[in-house]
């Protein structure tokens, strides 16, 4: 698996798009720091960008990489390699190279700005950790979609729909349900609803870490009670881990049964 990981990783590292992605974050980091001049505010703005963009890029890159490397995959399948190591290697190659673009692209400008001396370092680290989690989650989901769809166009369509659903539509439905059932106690429902969507979960996690839970409205207090504690943090991070593990397991399951 490590050999496949190595080749996928270097293959991606040489592609133009990794540089574009890296350069985008580098530029974003620099611009935010110079315009804001305030590290914690820059972190909030970054959160808003990352929460939406990282899943999108993860999904698109994952699907694109799978379809583009089909021939390579077929070449590998005829070699004495396990299917699980072929696909996990490719998946990790994509997810790692995307995470690296994110971490380096944002990390470098912040490092020069004096992150290590600042108190925002924990907020910033949490931002990068959730960003990496989101990359791993959505790349895995993208691989799942691509493995289940022979047709490229369909695969891309489903991938975009998935992103649209989790990034935008889910929130809308969630809010609607809160308004619709406002007469009932909604603490547990809203907690569970947030847990079930990795994007919402990441956003809540960061917002609470930044101590601006007042922005979250009337459930904010409950959220603070839950997510603000160490227990909440552990549960959230485990949920994010689960969001990585389940799709990865399905990649293994699906790839073992697929015809090439």
């Amino acid at each position: 698996m490590l050999k496949i990981l190595k080749y996928s990783f270097f293959d991606l590292m040489r592609s133009r798009w990794s540089y574009v992605y890296f350069a985008f974050y580098l530029l974003l980091g620099i611009v935010l720091l110079f315009l804001n001049n305030d590290l914690s505010k820059a972190v909030i703005t970054l959160m808003n960008v990352i929460i939406v963009l990282v899943p999108l890029i993860g999904t698109i890159f994952g699907v694109m990489y799978y379809y583009n490397s089909k021939e390579f995959t077929e070449l590998l399948l005829a070699q004495p390699l396990k299917r699980s190591s072929i696909f996990l290697g490719q998946y990790l190659g994509v997810a790692l190279s995307l995470s690296m673009s994110l971490i380096l692209g944002l990390g470098i400008p912040f490092m020069f700005y004096g992150l290590f001396k600042s108190t925002a370092i924990w907020d910033f680290s949490l931002l990068l950790i959730t960003g990496s989690f989101l990359t791993f989650i959505f790349t895995a989901l993208a691989f799942n979609i691509a493995l289940s769809n022979e047709n490229k166009i369909k695969g891309f369509g489903y991938a975009i729909l998935l992103w649209l659903f989790l990034a935008i539509i889910y929130d809308g439905m969630f809010l609607m349900s809160l308004i619709l059932f406002e007469d009932y106690p909604l603490d547990t429902l809203s907690l569970v609803g947030t847990m079930l969507n990795p994007i919402d979960l990441s956003r809540t996690l960061i917002l609470l870490k930044l101590d601006i839970s007042a922005l979250l409205g009337y459930t904010g207090a409950i959220f603070k009670q839950f997510f603000g504690t160490n227990f909440g943090l552990i549960v959230s991070l485990s949920t994010l881990t689960l969001w990585v593990i389940l799709p990865v397991l399905r990649i293994i399951y699906k790839s073992k049964r697929k015809d090439f």
Binding site: E71, E74, L75, A78
Partner: peptide, 11 residues
């Protein structure tokens, strides 16, 4: 194994 269509990673 020699596959039917010789498609390799193009880069």
């Amino acid at each position: 194994y020699l596959p039917q269509i010789a498609n390799f990673p193009s880069n």
